[in-house]
Amino acid sequence: MGNLVIVRHGESQWNRENRFTGWADIDLTANGIEQARCAGRALARAGFRFDLAITSMLKRTIRSQWLILDEMDAMFTPVISHWRLNERHYGALTGHSRAEMIERFGEEQVWAWRRGFDSRPPLMESTDARAPQQQARYKDVPRAELPLGESLHDTVERVRVVWNETIAPVLKQGKDVIISSHGNSQRALVKLLEDMPDEEVARFDVPNSVPLVYKLDTDLRVLERKSMTDIPHPGSSAIL
Rank of each mutant, 00 (worst) to 15 (best):
Q65G: 15
T61C: 10
A74P: 11
M75P: 06
H96Q: 12
A36I: 06
F50P: 12
L52Y: 05
R63L: 15
T55R: 05
S81H: 03
A30Y: 07
A24N: 14
E34I: 07
E71Y: 09
R41S: 10
L67I: 11
W66I: 10
R49H: 11
F48K: 04
L43A: 01
S81Y: 06
L52C: 00
R45F: 09
D51S: 06
Q65C: 15
R63F: 05
F50Y: 00
T55E: 05
G22N: 01
I33Q: 13
T94M: 13
D27N: 08
A36K: 03
A39W: 04
M101A: 00
I80R: 05
R98F: 13
S81L: 10
F76C: 11
A44Y: 06
A44M: 14
S81K: 01
R84K: 06
N86W: 11
A92N: 13
T77R: 06
I102W: 00
F20W: 10
R19M: 00
A74S: 15
W83G: 07
H82A: 04
L52I: 03
E100M: 08
I26R: 13
T55H: 04
R60Y: 15
I54T: 12
T29D: 07
G32D: 00
Y90F: 13
H96M: 07
E87H: 04
A99P: 05
L67M: 11
I102Y: 01
K59N: 11
R60A: 09
M57F: 09
E87A: 02
Y90H: 10
H96G: 06
